[in-house]
Design a binder for these strands. Structure first.
Lengths: 190, 190
DNA sequence: TTTATTTCTTGAAGTAGTTCAAGTTTTTTA
DNA sequence: TAAAAAACTTGAACTACTTCAAGAAATAAA
């Protein structure tokens, strides 16, 4: 089932049938069990993951030993550590499945080969990463301008299904406040 | 003086002399005076700016009416609002020169034409935006894991010249604390 | 130079969040 | 279906920061 990725690509560029075939031959869907990691701090990240089904998250372990989620990825998103990937340096991050998930894991060497064969895919990855960067800028804006309570209500009104989908403590850390405080916001005790 | 941009591009891809010529014919350096804006909240962002000389920043005005800097750009960086640029929607941001600066302003229509003529530039922009996204991820990590004091000392040890280069209150908002608190950190009164 | 503007500093009072610890509920595993 | 593990809740004490207000210093403009 690479259809999802092919459709996603074709939202941004047009592919010839032969190119679709080439692509399909390089891609494999693989399953990742809930809580399994595809990247661990200190490793070099050599793979980009396209999420076909499920949910992954990127997180760090802070000085106090607790996890903080920096980013979630769901269906139709790419997730990776671009800095580690591009510069071939050890990553600062963990990437883990939040649910049982299916991803297309694209190795750097495979991707480079595909890009040589189908150069117009550069355009696809260019647009996708520009959008991701734009989203990261908006995320920083929200973190800077809203109070904890506002951040919770904002995500809850924009993405109510998503809020139900992930554990509260992960969402709390993603919104940069404690799980306890989240609990108080939800019960109106703040 | 497009040499800086051409050099930057050629760090990532190889250009033929003819391509360099094509490119040069499309580019113009323009000057932006300190405090002038190249983007104002509500406008649609149609331009990417490559900074040849000087410093620009992206900021917002928060609910209390004060400015918060989300991003700085210096020599060899691109600055724009990618979401507004790609989706043709009004921007949430201001982009302003912090110093008298020189930039290469690349209009969307010009860029699209250049990309058709020199498709391998897609690769350049792909890599640049992936790096930017990686940097944004690291920025979120620092904001999440370090205290205000740690963030100040970190930037001060990593980029001491830069810390001297911009007003303290702008840097404070970039690091997400108040100008007053920055002053106290610096004088050791915290 | 003088004046105006911008930037930086300082202390006092306030607050939006954290931390801890213990208990409860829900989900998963055997 | 029992037991274990994971996730959520609650209140009390604390703290890393903010806000305000006023003045001092530095920079830019006239």
């Amino acid at each position: 089932m690479h259809k999802l990725l092919l459709d996603h690509i074709q939202k941004f560029i047009h592919l010839e049938p032969s190119e679709i075939e080439t692509l399909e031959s390089c891609l494999d869907v693989c399953k990742i069990k809930k809580k399994d990691h595809v990247l661990i701090e200190g490793q070099i990240c050599n793979t980009m993951y396209f999420i076909v089904k499920g949910c992954l998250r990127q997180y760090i372990i802070n000085a106090k030993g607790s996890e903080q989620t920096l980013q979630f990825g769901i269906e139709n998103w790419w997730i990776t550590d671009y800095l580690s990937y591009l510069n071939h340096v050890p990553t600062h991050f963990y990437i883990q499945a939040v649910e049982n998930s299916e991803v297309i894991a694209l190795e750097k060497s495979t991707l480079e080969a595909i890009l040589l064969e189908i150069p117009k895919l550069e355009r696809y990855f260019r647009i996708v990463s520009q959008k991701s960067f734009g989203a990261a800028q908006m995320r920083i804006k929200f973190l800077f301008t809203m109070s904890a309570e506002e951040r919770y209500h904002h995500i809850n009104s924009q993405f109510p299904e998503f809020v139900q989908r992930v554990p509260q403590y992960m969402l709390a850390s993603y919104l940069d406040f404690s799980a306890e405080f989240m609990s108080k916001i939800r019960s109106g005790k703040v």
